[in-house]
Design a protein around this nucleic acid. Structure first.
Length: 865
RNA sequence: GCGGCCGUGGUGAAAUUGGUAAACACGCCAGGUUUAGGUCCUGGUAGCGAAAGCUUUGGGGGUUCAAGUCCCUUCGGCCGCACCA
């Protein structure tokens, strides 16, 4: 009987004794032989959940495979330890964020260790440690000195529940990503990072991350999401001359500059519109009360509705006019409009109602002309927004295609100095200020005399004070009695520290670099980076497709420009794993029940275990505390063992898909281990212990015994599955191999053949069930010393070739017959065998054979009249 | 609205990338074993049909000797973005 408890404990002890998981040191010549596998670092919420387990199992299987192949592997783990939950816990139960966080880390670390995962704990880091964030402050200053950090008084997304500013990426459907509260607009001075300066490279490099056939790269989906997020569009900035009529207000520019991606539709323009906070709008508002009222009305609209574009389009006619850049005689009214965004383009547009839905809606409402300038054979309904068609009503553009008209008009306007071709991006600069305590203090000082200055590097780290008061709402650093009061390091006068802390995405933007030299005095050690980076395989959830993954790429470029590192992209291959789901249960009063509180009968009806009341199986959804549809990993491990859990979680469902928890299938994994162990016992009973015979892997020993061939055929398939990272297929092949071995156990297979077969059988299973495999290996083989790692078996490709094939015989494309044939049979032979088969003849009937298609070693298709 | 992904047995899924659809597993059915057990072993399991055989990869059409795979169309689901000019 296989006893997983003692076996798992035994091998974990040996791994610790042997320092099995300590990262090997490497030299530059090892680069082709290194592998950096990383799972996204967890937030220390206190408990490991199944999502973590799935994430880490994928990484661990990969690591063990790579190590078995002889790669030098870096596989670290750490904690994304700053952030709001710690602060919320402090507010709710009075536990200090630091205490709360480190307690959680302790607890989670113990669980992860008990999972037997191959992490090098010497490299563990917590982003909330003074050491880590001190280095981070140093990086911040360097980035600042590089001119990539600036301060901006700006409208921000304010989360009224969390009392903090949110980045655009943290606003989902107009609600705070964490609190779910409706986000409101508020003006605050913010620290911003110039990510937009890297928009082009961030976009361009996406092409280099595309996955080749079976060869790493990033999922197409993530690339698309990043591409859309960056949102590049090519267009033109065009000057519209402002007409100085009676409504004119003094504006420093003669022209209103608008941005458009459709310059060819200029002849169809019937108005211009500017954003509420456009400089011209603000000027007008100073003199015009109605305009001021309109603007403040617009700003009252909650971001929720704004961003969902459900707000009715409204405009304020300023009474001012511009002349159309393409035709001075064409005069267009200027509106202030609620649908024009200051943040995009120039904050001003021209409206061409015939060919833009928004402009159409606006023009209809305010009775503005709707002039069609593109004729299409496909549709004559307006607005017509496609770019197929021919230009009409457009002066010198008439008769041109849309594309040609665009080129022509751009050339014309540039020549006339009325416009410049321009590229804009949807991507905004990254606002990193947070009005929170539990984060990395921004190392800046506000001095009345010197202005805003950086903290000298010798004064780093700026340490968070421990004595903070959470009873007052707002930022505890801001109302701390002493912390923020300092002397200016440059002039010595009274000054104040910056009390904003950094967005926690800052920490996760460079931790993978720190892992390469976690104890170095410098934040980043260039030699270590050259050795280990980039991360070869990065594994995590798709929810970070645009947040973390974009920032980390940006940081890599920035730190490369600062001279810290020598690469531009941090993650070569990205694996995004699906969620772990489970049915959620609800009783008739709406209360959620844990799975173990529910009894499911054969007909699918559910009842509560305690009082038998009726329970509804709602649906299978992501495991979550609120829905109580949780399975506790620790409980599963104590009942089934680690290896069974690993096999179960890697079987059946591809890692990128959502995984439905299924206790029956977990039983199946457990049964498989036991079946394997019984097989080991039978093998041992028959063959005793396999000795050196197996190591004599010379050519003389080549034997084409059937089982050996079968085994090498499976090894080949399993190798491919591992290389392509489709683990569930590797397990399926392994099960087939197991069955094949069972089948020959009553035959007289020579001992050296069996030794080779079993050797392969156990070794390829080790990444999935490392404890089991080592135990089985030790049980069946005399090994010279204590082993802690099984090397990958060598494929003998001359054996992995089938020498017969099943030939399919089709008549008119439908399968009628199959026969076994040796490989390499000639077309004529195959044809003759097929045509002479009685069964096949029946289907040819008396029709004449028109032609015969032959796919060598595979198929014959007889085509009749 | 725009963009992307995906529809295969009762279920999770395979299919060497255009060449024998449903490997492997879960579940279910039948049979067997003195089976303490979350057992184990053998066989069956896409549908229809007594069988020969016919039908079958959401629906319809097309290309091809051959389509789950390619093209068009339609329906359904999931995800992302959402007044981005």
């Amino acid at each position: 009987m296989y006893s997983f408890k003692s076996v798992e404990e035994k091998w974990q002890k040996i791994w610790i004794q042997n320092n099995t998981n300590v990262t090997p040191s490497i030299s530059p010549t090892d680069r082709d032989n290194k592998c950096y596998v990383l799972e996204m670092l967890p937030y220390p919420s206190g408990k490991i959940h199944m999502g973590h387990v799935r994430n880490y199992c994928i990484g661990d299987v990969l690591v063990r495979y790579k190590k078995a192949l002889g790669y030098k592997v870096l596989h670290p783990m750490g904690w994304d330890a700053f952030g709001m939950p710690a602060e919320n816990a402090a507010i709710q139960n009075g536990t200090h964020p630091k205490v709360w966080t480190y307690q959680n880390i302790e607890e989670m670390k113990n669980t992860i260790i008990s999972l037997g995962l191959s992490y090098d704990w010497d490299r563990e880091l917590a982003t909330c440690s003074e050491e880590y964030y001190g280095h981070e402050q140093r990086l911040f200053i360097e980035i600042y000195e590089k001119g990539l950090v600036y301060r901006k008084e700006s409208w921000v997304n304010w989360d009224p529940v969390d009392n903090t500013v949110l980045a655009n990426e943290q606003v989902i459907d107009g609600k705070g990503w964490r609190s779910g509260a409706d986000v409101v607009k508020k003006q605050l001075p913010q620290w911003c990072l110039r990510i937009t300066q890297y928009a082009e490279e961030l976009l361009r490099n996406l092409a280099t991350l595309k996955s080749d056939v079976n060869c790493g790269g990033w999922p197409e989906k993530v690339l698309t999401m990043q591409e859309n997020w960056i949102g590049k569009s090519d267009g033109m900035s065009i000057k519209f001359k402002i007409i100085k009529n009676s409504n004119y207000v003094g504006y420093p520019e003669d022209n209103l500059v608008i941005f458009t991606t459709r310059p060819e539709t200029l002849f169809g323009a019937s108005f211009c519109a500017i954003a509420c906070n456009h400089p011209l709008a603000l000027l007008i508002a100073q003199e015009n009360k109605a305009a001021a009222t309109f603007i403040s009305e617009c700003q009252k609209i909650p971001t929720t509705e704004c961003s969902q574009s459900i707000v009715e389009k409204k405009g304020f006619n300023t009474g001012m006019f511009v002349s159309n850049a393409i035709n001075q005689d064409d005069v267009l009214p200027i509106f202030i409009a609620n649908f024009v965004l200051m943040e995009y383009g120039t904050g001003a547009i021209f409206g061409c109602p015939a060919h833009d839905e928004r402009d159409f809606e606006f023009a209809t409402k305010y009775n503005l002309p709707i002039r069609s300038v593109i004729s299409s054979s496909k549709s004559d309904s307006l607005p017509y927004v496609c770019t197929n068609g021919m230009m009409i009503n457009s002066g010198f553009l008439n008769g041109l295609s849309v594309a040609d008209a665009r080129t022509t008009v751009c050339n014309f306007l540039e020549k006339a100095l009325l416009g410049t071709r321009e590229t804009t991006y949807r991507l905004r600069d990254w606002s990193v200020s947070r009005q929170r305590y539990w984060g990395c203090p921004i190392p800046m000082i506000h001095c009345k005399k010197c202005g805003i200055v950086t903290v000298p590097k010798k004064d780093l780290p700026i340490v968070l004070p421990d004595d903070v008061d959470f009873s007052v709402p707002g930022n505890p650093l801001d109302h701390h009695p002493t912390w923020k009061y300092v002397k200016c390091p440059y002039c010595g006068t009274d000054a104040e520290r910056e009390t904003d802390t950094l967005d926690t995405f800052f920490e996760s933007s460079w931790y993978f670099l720190r892992y390469c030299s976690p104890h170095d005095d410098e934040p980043i050690n260039k030699k270590a980076i050259e050795a280990w980076m980039p991360v070869d395989v990065y594994i995590g959830g798709i929810e970070h497709a645009v947040l973390h993954l974009l920032y980390a790429r940006f940081f890599t470029m920035v730190l490369s420009d600062c001279g810290y590192i020598n690469i531009r992209e941090p993650f070569t291959t990205l694996l995004t794993q699906g969620m772990v789901c489970h049915t959620s249960f609800q009783d008739d009063s709406g209360k959620w029940l844990y799975p173990n509180e529910v009894e499911i009968e054969k007909d699918g009806k559910c009842f509560a275990v305690d009082d038998g009341r009726h329970v509804t199986a709602v649906r299978s959804e992501k495991m979550s505390k609120s829905k109580k549809n949780l399975i506790d990993p620790e409980q599963i491990i104590s009942t089934y063992g680690l290896d069974a859990l690993r096999i179960f979680i890697m079987s059946d469902t591809p890692y990128e898909k959502d995984f439905d928890w299924n206790t029956d299938a977990l039983d199946g994994a457990w049964r498989y281990l036991n079946k394997m162990w019984r097989l080991c016992e039978r093998i041992n009973a028959k063959y005793k212990i396999f000795t050196e015979v197996l190591y004599k892997n010379d050519s003389a020993a080549i034997d084409s015994s059937h089982i050996l061939k079968v085994t090498h055929c499976y090894l080949k398939k399993i190798n491919t599955a591992f290389d392509q990272i489709v683990f569930h297929k590797a397990i399926a092949f392994h099960r087939e191999l197991t069955r094949a071995i069972e089948g020959v156990l009553n035959e007289d297979v020579p001992v050296h053949i069996m030794a080779e077969v079993i050797n392969i059988w156990i070794r390829v299973f080790a990444p999935f069930a490392p404890h089991f495999a080592l135990e089985a290996y030790q049980f069946l083989f005399s090994s010279p010393e204590t082993i802690d790692l099984l090397h990958w078996p060598t494929l003998r490709s001359e054996l992995a070739r089938e020498d017969t094939a099943t030939i399919a015989v089709q008549v008119n494309g439908r399968l009628r017959h199959t026969f076994e044939s040796h490989l390499g049979r000639s077309d004529d032979e195959l044809k003759e065998i097929s045509l002479s088969n009685e069964h096949v003849k029946k289907f040819i009937k008396c029709n004449t054979v028109k032609k015969v298609i032959i796919v060598p070693d595979k198929l014959v298709n007889i085509v009749t009249e």
